[in-house]
Design a protein around this nucleic acid. Sequence first.
DNA 1: ATTATACGAAACCAAATGGTTTCATGTCAA
DNA 2: TTGACATGAAACCATTTGGTTTCGTATAAT
Lengths: 113, 113
Amino acid sequence: MTQPLPKYDVFQAIADPTRRQLLQLLTDQEMPVTVISGHFPMSRTAVSKHLRVLAEAGLVKERKVGRETRYRLDPEPLRELKRWLAYYERYWENKLSMLKHYVESDESDETTS
Amino acid sequence: MTQPLPKYDVFQAIADPTRRQLLQLLTDQEMPVTVISGHFPMSRTAVSKHLRVLAEAGLVKERKVGRETRYRLDPEPLRELKRWLAYYERYWENKLSMLKHYVESDESDETTS
DNA sequence: ATTATACGAAACCAAATGGTTTCATGTCAA
DNA sequence: TTGACATGAAACCATTTGGTTTCGTATAAT
Protein backbone atom coordinates (compact mmCIF):
# COMPACT_ATOMS: atom_id res chain seq x y z
CA MET A 1 0.00 0.00 0.00
CA THR A 2 0.98 3.62 -0.20
CA GLN A 3 3.75 2.99 -2.69
CA PRO A 4 7.12 4.29 -1.51
CA LEU A 5 6.30 7.06 -3.97
CA PRO A 6 9.60 7.13 -5.83
CA LYS A 7 11.33 10.44 -5.34
CA TYR A 8 12.89 10.38 -8.78
CA ASP A 9 11.21 9.74 -12.09
CA VAL A 10 12.84 8.77 -15.36
CA PHE A 11 12.93 12.31 -16.65
CA GLN A 12 14.84 13.59 -13.67
CA ALA A 13 17.08 10.55 -13.55
CA ILE A 14 18.38 10.96 -17.08
CA ALA A 15 18.73 14.72 -16.81
CA ASP A 16 22.18 14.40 -15.30
CA PRO A 17 25.03 13.59 -17.71
CA THR A 18 26.87 11.49 -15.15
CA ARG A 19 23.81 9.33 -14.69
CA ARG A 20 23.46 8.88 -18.43
CA GLN A 21 27.05 7.71 -18.56
CA LEU A 22 26.29 5.33 -15.74
CA LEU A 23 23.46 3.80 -17.72
CA GLN A 24 25.72 3.36 -20.68
CA LEU A 25 28.41 1.77 -18.59
CA LEU A 26 25.97 -0.66 -17.02
CA THR A 27 24.41 -1.61 -20.32
CA ASP A 28 26.61 -4.60 -20.94
CA GLN A 29 28.01 -5.33 -17.53
CA GLU A 30 26.79 -5.90 -14.05
CA MET A 31 29.32 -4.12 -11.87
CA PRO A 32 30.10 -3.40 -8.22
CA VAL A 33 30.21 0.16 -6.98
CA THR A 34 33.97 0.46 -6.63
CA VAL A 35 34.58 -0.65 -10.19
CA ILE A 36 31.87 1.64 -11.46
CA SER A 37 33.22 4.65 -9.62
CA GLY A 38 36.63 3.94 -11.12
CA HIS A 39 35.22 5.26 -14.37
CA PHE A 40 34.30 8.64 -12.96
CA PRO A 41 36.29 11.62 -11.77
CA MET A 42 34.39 11.92 -8.52
CA SER A 43 34.27 10.13 -5.21
CA ARG A 44 32.81 6.67 -4.82
CA THR A 45 30.16 8.13 -2.52
CA ALA A 46 29.04 10.57 -5.17
CA VAL A 47 28.70 7.79 -7.72
CA SER A 48 26.84 5.76 -5.16
CA LYS A 49 24.31 8.54 -4.75
CA HIS A 50 23.78 8.74 -8.49
CA LEU A 51 23.22 5.01 -8.53
CA ARG A 52 20.57 5.34 -5.88
CA VAL A 53 18.77 7.97 -7.93
CA LEU A 54 18.82 5.64 -10.91
CA ALA A 55 17.61 2.79 -8.73
CA GLU A 56 14.71 4.85 -7.41
CA ALA A 57 13.74 5.62 -10.96
CA GLY A 58 13.90 1.90 -11.65
CA LEU A 59 16.62 2.28 -14.25
CA VAL A 60 19.11 0.03 -12.48
CA LYS A 61 18.74 -2.99 -10.25
CA GLU A 62 21.04 -3.77 -7.36
CA ARG A 63 22.10 -7.16 -6.11
CA LYS A 64 24.18 -7.90 -3.04
CA VAL A 65 26.98 -10.35 -3.62
CA GLY A 66 29.11 -10.86 -0.58
CA ARG A 67 30.36 -7.52 0.56
CA GLU A 68 29.74 -5.83 -2.73
CA THR A 69 26.64 -4.40 -4.35
CA ARG A 70 26.39 -4.97 -8.05
CA TYR A 71 24.34 -2.84 -10.34
CA ARG A 72 22.91 -3.58 -13.73
CA LEU A 73 20.75 -1.70 -16.20
CA ASP A 74 17.00 -2.13 -16.27
CA PRO A 75 15.74 -0.29 -19.35
CA GLU A 76 12.09 -0.92 -18.53
CA PRO A 77 11.29 2.64 -17.34
CA LEU A 78 12.57 3.98 -20.62
CA ARG A 79 9.37 2.70 -22.16
CA GLU A 80 7.58 5.58 -20.51
CA LEU A 81 10.01 7.99 -22.09
CA LYS A 82 9.44 6.30 -25.42
CA ARG A 83 5.70 6.75 -25.09
CA TRP A 84 6.10 10.39 -24.12
CA LEU A 85 8.31 10.94 -27.10
CA ALA A 86 5.96 9.15 -29.49
CA TYR A 87 3.39 11.85 -28.91
CA TYR A 88 5.67 14.49 -30.40
CA GLU A 89 7.17 12.27 -33.01
CA ARG A 90 4.51 12.99 -35.57
CA TYR A 91 5.36 16.66 -35.36
CA TRP A 92 8.78 16.23 -36.76
CA GLU A 93 7.86 13.29 -38.96
CA ASN A 94 6.19 15.75 -41.25
CA LYS A 95 7.22 19.33 -40.87
CA LEU A 96 4.13 20.09 -42.91
CA SER A 97 1.85 19.83 -39.93
CA MET A 98 4.13 22.17 -38.04
CA LEU A 99 4.00 24.75 -40.78
CA LYS A 100 0.26 24.32 -40.96
CA HIS A 101 -0.14 25.09 -37.29
CA TYR A 102 2.13 28.04 -37.58
CA VAL A 103 0.24 29.60 -40.45
CA GLU A 104 -3.12 28.93 -38.89
CA SER A 105 -2.39 30.59 -35.56
CA ASP A 106 -0.81 33.43 -37.45
CA GLU A 107 -3.87 34.11 -39.56
CA SER A 108 -6.35 33.64 -36.76
CA ASP A 109 -4.92 36.80 -35.27
CA GLU A 110 -3.97 38.95 -38.18
CA THR A 111 -7.47 38.62 -39.58
CA THR A 112 -9.08 39.50 -36.30
CA SER A 113 -7.34 42.78 -35.68
CA MET B 1 31.01 32.40 -33.71
CA THR B 2 31.62 30.85 -30.34
CA GLN B 3 28.07 29.61 -30.11
CA PRO B 4 26.19 31.07 -27.14
CA LEU B 5 26.81 27.59 -25.72
CA PRO B 6 23.25 26.79 -24.69
CA LYS B 7 22.99 26.51 -20.96
CA TYR B 8 20.23 23.94 -21.10
CA ASP B 9 20.09 20.73 -23.09
CA VAL B 10 17.03 18.71 -23.97
CA PHE B 11 17.48 16.30 -21.09
CA GLN B 12 17.48 19.05 -18.53
CA ALA B 13 14.69 20.93 -20.24
CA ILE B 14 12.22 18.07 -20.11
CA ALA B 15 13.17 17.05 -16.60
CA ASP B 16 10.75 19.53 -15.09
CA PRO B 17 7.05 18.55 -15.14
CA THR B 18 5.91 22.13 -15.67
CA ARG B 19 8.06 22.40 -18.75
CA ARG B 20 6.67 19.15 -20.12
CA GLN B 21 3.19 20.57 -19.68
CA LEU B 22 4.30 23.68 -21.48
CA LEU B 23 5.44 21.64 -24.44
CA GLN B 24 2.13 19.86 -24.53
CA LEU B 25 0.21 23.11 -24.35
CA LEU B 26 2.23 24.62 -27.16
CA THR B 27 1.89 21.59 -29.36
CA ASP B 28 -1.15 22.78 -31.22
CA GLN B 29 -1.14 26.48 -30.53
CA GLU B 30 1.19 29.38 -30.78
CA MET B 31 0.46 31.43 -27.69
CA PRO B 32 1.53 34.63 -25.94
CA VAL B 33 3.04 34.47 -22.47
CA THR B 34 0.05 35.80 -20.56
CA VAL B 35 -2.29 33.25 -22.08
CA ILE B 36 0.18 30.47 -21.45
CA SER B 37 0.71 31.42 -17.84
CA GLY B 38 -3.04 31.39 -17.37
CA HIS B 39 -2.81 27.60 -17.52
CA PHE B 40 -0.41 27.35 -14.62
CA PRO B 41 -0.71 27.93 -10.88
CA MET B 42 2.36 30.12 -10.73
CA SER B 43 3.31 33.65 -11.62
CA ARG B 44 3.69 34.80 -15.21
CA THR B 45 7.34 35.50 -14.51
CA ALA B 46 7.94 31.93 -13.40
CA VAL B 47 6.33 30.58 -16.54
CA SER B 48 8.38 33.03 -18.55
CA LYS B 49 11.56 31.61 -17.05
CA HIS B 50 10.52 28.08 -17.92
CA LEU B 51 9.87 29.22 -21.45
CA ARG B 52 13.33 30.64 -21.69
CA VAL B 53 14.80 27.34 -20.57
CA LEU B 54 12.82 25.57 -23.26
CA ALA B 55 13.89 28.16 -25.79
CA GLU B 56 17.56 27.71 -24.91
CA ALA B 57 17.16 23.99 -25.41
CA GLY B 58 15.60 24.79 -28.77
CA LEU B 59 12.29 23.18 -27.89
CA VAL B 60 10.23 26.30 -28.44
CA LYS B 61 10.56 29.26 -30.75
CA GLU B 62 9.56 32.80 -29.84
CA ARG B 63 8.18 35.46 -32.10
CA LYS B 64 7.42 39.04 -31.19
CA VAL B 65 4.03 40.29 -32.34
CA GLY B 66 3.31 43.79 -31.22
CA ARG B 67 3.75 43.94 -27.47
CA GLU B 68 3.41 40.23 -27.00
CA THR B 69 5.83 37.35 -27.39
CA ARG B 70 4.32 34.22 -28.83
CA TYR B 71 5.76 30.81 -28.32
CA ARG B 72 5.35 27.65 -30.29
CA LEU B 73 6.73 24.15 -30.09
CA ASP B 74 9.78 23.10 -32.03
CA PRO B 75 10.13 19.35 -31.63
CA GLU B 76 13.41 19.19 -33.52
CA PRO B 77 15.68 18.71 -30.48
CA LEU B 78 13.61 15.71 -29.49
CA ARG B 79 15.34 13.84 -32.26
CA GLU B 80 18.41 13.72 -30.11
CA LEU B 81 16.40 12.19 -27.32
CA LYS B 82 14.99 9.70 -29.77
CA ARG B 83 18.47 8.69 -30.86
CA TRP B 84 19.63 8.36 -27.29
CA LEU B 85 16.66 6.19 -26.53
CA ALA B 86 17.14 4.03 -29.60
CA TYR B 87 20.39 2.77 -28.16
CA TYR B 88 18.61 1.20 -25.21
CA GLU B 89 15.57 0.14 -27.10
CA ARG B 90 17.01 -3.18 -28.14
CA TYR B 91 17.47 -4.07 -24.51
CA TRP B 92 13.82 -4.10 -23.75
CA GLU B 93 12.80 -5.27 -27.19
CA ASN B 94 13.97 -8.70 -26.19
CA LYS B 95 14.36 -9.33 -22.52
CA LEU B 96 16.38 -12.36 -23.59
CA SER B 97 19.50 -10.33 -24.13
CA MET B 98 19.04 -8.78 -20.72
CA LEU B 99 18.77 -12.16 -19.06
CA LYS B 100 21.74 -13.36 -21.06
CA HIS B 101 23.89 -10.52 -19.83
CA TYR B 102 22.73 -11.12 -16.30
CA VAL B 103 23.59 -14.80 -16.32
CA GLU B 104 26.91 -14.23 -18.03
CA SER B 105 28.21 -11.69 -15.58
CA ASP B 106 26.93 -13.90 -12.79
CA GLU B 107 28.83 -16.95 -13.96
CA SER B 108 31.98 -15.09 -14.85
CA ASP B 109 32.37 -14.47 -11.16
CA GLU B 110 30.96 -17.55 -9.49
CA THR B 111 33.23 -19.76 -11.55
CA THR B 112 36.27 -17.63 -10.81
CA SER B 113 36.01 -17.65 -7.04
C1' DA C 1 -1.12 62.66 -23.86
C1' DT C 2 -2.34 59.44 -20.74
C1' DT C 3 -3.38 55.10 -19.22
C1' DA C 4 -3.43 50.16 -19.53
C1' DT C 5 -1.25 45.94 -21.18
C1' DA C 6 2.57 42.51 -22.09
C1' DC C 7 6.67 41.44 -21.00
C1' DG C 8 11.66 40.95 -19.36
C1' DA C 9 15.21 42.11 -15.89
C1' DA C 10 16.73 42.18 -11.31
C1' DA C 11 16.96 41.18 -6.64
C1' DC C 12 15.80 38.06 -3.54
C1' DC C 13 14.72 33.48 -1.12
C1' DA C 14 14.04 28.51 0.23
C1' DA C 15 14.78 24.10 -1.21
C1' DA C 16 16.98 20.74 -4.07
C1' DT C 17 21.19 19.06 -6.18
C1' DG C 18 25.77 17.41 -6.69
C1' DG C 19 29.60 17.09 -4.49
C1' DT C 20 32.81 16.37 -0.33
C1' DT C 21 34.79 14.10 4.02
C1' DT C 22 34.25 11.26 7.98
C1' DC C 23 32.49 7.35 10.35
C1' DA C 24 30.16 2.76 11.14
C1' DT C 25 29.24 -1.81 9.63
C1' DG C 26 29.43 -6.07 7.29
C1' DT C 27 32.23 -9.35 4.84
C1' DC C 28 36.46 -11.49 3.16
C1' DA C 29 41.36 -12.93 3.81
C1' DA C 30 45.60 -14.01 6.70
C1' DT D 1 41.05 -12.59 15.57
C1' DT D 2 42.88 -9.08 13.14
C1' DG D 3 43.17 -6.35 9.38
C1' DA D 4 41.75 -4.98 4.73
C1' DC D 5 37.98 -4.08 1.56
C1' DA D 6 33.23 -2.57 -0.04
C1' DT D 7 29.74 0.05 0.97
C1' DG D 8 26.08 3.12 2.99
C1' DA D 9 24.85 6.81 6.26
C1' DA D 10 25.48 11.29 7.96
C1' DA D 11 26.89 15.85 8.23
C1' DC D 12 28.25 19.41 5.71
C1' DC D 13 28.85 22.86 1.80
C1' DA D 14 28.44 25.63 -2.64
C1' DT D 15 25.72 26.11 -6.52
C1' DT D 16 21.61 25.61 -9.08
C1' DT D 17 16.79 25.66 -9.38
C1' DG D 18 12.13 27.14 -9.10
C1' DG D 19 9.67 30.34 -7.28
C1' DT D 20 8.46 35.22 -5.62
C1' DT D 21 7.90 40.49 -5.83
C1' DT D 22 9.17 44.87 -7.66
C1' DC D 23 10.42 47.84 -11.28
C1' DG D 24 11.34 49.53 -16.13
C1' DT D 25 10.06 49.78 -20.81
C1' DA D 26 7.80 49.13 -25.12
C1' DT D 27 3.45 48.89 -27.43
C1' DA D 28 -1.57 49.53 -27.76
C1' DA D 29 -5.86 51.82 -26.67
C1' DT D 30 -8.69 56.01 -25.08
